[in-house]
C-alpha cells in the first residue's frame, strides 16, 4: 500500500482505537517504519483522541488517588527488600549449593578412600588370619612334637637319607603300648609327577606299608605294627604300591 492508501483506508484510526488484530497492528508498525512521516499523521489522531478523552473526563472518587499512590508506594517498598532479599537469598542459595557440592565431593573422595582402606584392611586381615592359622597349626604341631619327644612311651627313630635326600629329615614316633605311630617329615622335595612317598616297615622279613605322604611336612599318623625291625621310605607310582620299589629307596634305618 502507498502512504496515501494507508491514510485513506482508516487503518491508522483503527490502530489508535485498539480495534486491530495483532497481525494488523504489526503491519501498521512496519508501515510506520517504512514511511516515517506516517507517524505525524498517527500522532495527530492519537492527540485528537486523547483530547476527546480528556474532554469527556469524569471525576473519579477522591479517595481513589490516595489509594493508587499508597498501592504504588507499597509496591515499591515490597519490591526493594524483595529484590535485595531475593538477590541475597539467591547468593546464599548458590553458596549453599557450592558448599554442598564441595562437601559431596569430599565425602565421595573420603568414602572412596575409606572403601579402599577397608578393602586393604580386609585383605590384611585375611592374610593375618591365614598367617595366624598357619602359626597356630605350626605351634600345635610343635607342641605335639615336643610332647612326642618328651613322651616316655614313644620310641623316636630318625631315618637317614640317601645322597639326594641328605637335607631331608624324617622322624618316626613309635608307641607299642598304645599301638600308635607318627611320622614327622621335614624339607622333603616335591616327589616326581604321578608319584608319592611311601613308608614301609619290615616285620618278620616282610615289607609292610604303614602310610604315604606328599612331603609337605607336618605330623602324619602311620599304621602301627608290632615287631618292626626297619623303617624305609620309597618313591612309588600313583597313590602307593603293595610292594616297595627298592630301586627308589630314599631313606631307611634299622630299629
Amino acid at each position: 500500500m502507498t502512504k496515501k492508501e494507508i491514510i485513506e483506508s482508516g487503518v491508522l484510526e483503527q490502530y489508535v482505537l485498539g480495534l486491530l488484530e495483532n497481525d494488523e497492528e504489526a503491519q501498521v508498525l512496519s508501515w510506520l517504519e517504512k514511511y516515517p512521516d506516517l507517524r505525524d499523521h498517527l500522532i495527530g489522531i492519537e492527540t485528537l483522541m486523547e483530547q476527546i478523552a480528556l474532554d469527556e473526563s469524569i471525576e473519579p472518587p477522591p479517595e481513589a488517588r490516595q489509594n493508587v499512590l499508597d498501592r504504588v508506594e507499597a509496591e515499591m517498598n515490597s519490591r526493594k527488600p524483595e529484590k535485595g532479599s531475593n538477590s541475597f537469598l539467591q547468593s546464599l542459595g548458590w553458596i549453599a549449593a557450592g558448599i554442598c557440592l564441595l562437601a559431596a565431593g569430599m565425602l565421595w573422595s573420603s568414602n572412596k578412600n575409606v572403601i579402599s582402606e577397608l578393602e586393604t584392611l580386609k585383605s590384611d586381615k585375611a592374610i593375618l588370619e591365614k598367617s595366624c592359622a598357619e602359626e597356630r597349626k605350626a605351634s600345635d604341631e610343635n607342641r605335639r612334637l615336643l610332647d612326642l619327644y618328651e613322651s616316655e612311651v614313644f620310641t623316636t627313630v630318625a631315618l637317614e637319607g640317601t645322597e639326594n635326600y641328605s637335607n631331608s629329615r624324617a622322624v618316626v614316633f613309635w608307641n607299642n603300648q598304645d599301638r600308635v605311630a607318627y611320622l614327622n617329615c621335614v624339607r622333603f622335595p616335591k616327589p616326581p609327577d604321578g608319584h608319592i612317598y611311601q613308608i614301609w616297615v619290615d616285620v618278620d622279613g616282610e615289607m609292610l606299608s604303614t602310610g604315604t605322604f606328599s612331603g609337605e611336612g607336618g605330623l602324619i599318623e602311620l599304621r602301627h605294627y608290632d615287631r618292626i625291625t626297619s623303617l624305609n621310605i620309597t618313591i612309588e607310582k600313583g597313590q602307593g604300591s603293595d610292594h616297595p620299589d627298592v630301586s627308589n629307596l630314599i631313606m631307611n634305618t634299622q630299629v
Binding site: 486523547e50 480528556l54 473526563s57 469524569i58 473519579p60 488517588r65 493508587v68 499512590l69 504504588v72
Partner: peptide, 14 residues
C-alpha cells in the same frame, strides 16, 4: 506519580 494520575485519571475513569 500523583502528577500522572492528576493528568489522566479523569479521562481513563470516563
Amino acid at each position: 506519580y500523583g502528577k500522572v494520575y492528576d493528568a489522566y485519571s479523569g479521562a481513563l475513569y470516563g
